[in-house]
């Protein structure tokens, strides 16, 4: 039972991650793939932040009268990773816009058909 309570947080996060991953690999729409990547990455962030949490801790801003702080390092890593994810999203969507202009569609299957005809 303690085993279950100790890890429920991680398990839900894994389900979330797989939701995003599934969207990326199963959906043919290019915008939705980028959104899937975004969900996937955001869920990985939750995994990192979960591991930083200490029971009964507070935010890592040092103040008088507090002694237990959550781990600041994963927070720093995830700040970086959020920015990376934004950069990926922006570039991915910019590519989708250009693909839409060049092919007239943003559906992967239709693009394949057009490429075959070339």
């Amino acid at each position: 039972m303690t085993e279950l309570l100790g890890h429920y947080n991680y398990w839900i996060v894994i389900i979330l991650m797989m939701t995003g991953f599934y969207i990326v690999i199963a959906r043919p729409n290019l915008v939705k793939k980028v959104i899937g990547l975004f969900i996937f990455q955001t869920s990985v962030f939750i995994l990192f932040i979960s591991m930083a949490k200490i029971e009964g801790g507070t935010a890592p801003i040092i103040e008088e009268g507090l002694s237990v702080y959550s781990n600041p390092l994963p927070h720093v890593l995830i700040l970086t990773a959020i920015v990376v994810s934004l950069a990926t999203t922006a570039l991915g969507l910019a590519l989708v816009v250009r693909i839409q202009e060049a092919y007239g569609t943003s559906n992967e299957d239709d693009i394949h058909v057009q490429d075959e005809e070339d």
């Binding site: 590519l95 250009r98 693909i99 490429d115």
Partner: peptide, 9 residues
């Protein structure tokens, strides 16, 4: 463009 997109994903 599509090659870059595929690589990006």
């Amino acid at each position: 463009l599509t090659a870059a997109y595929q690589y990006l994903v």
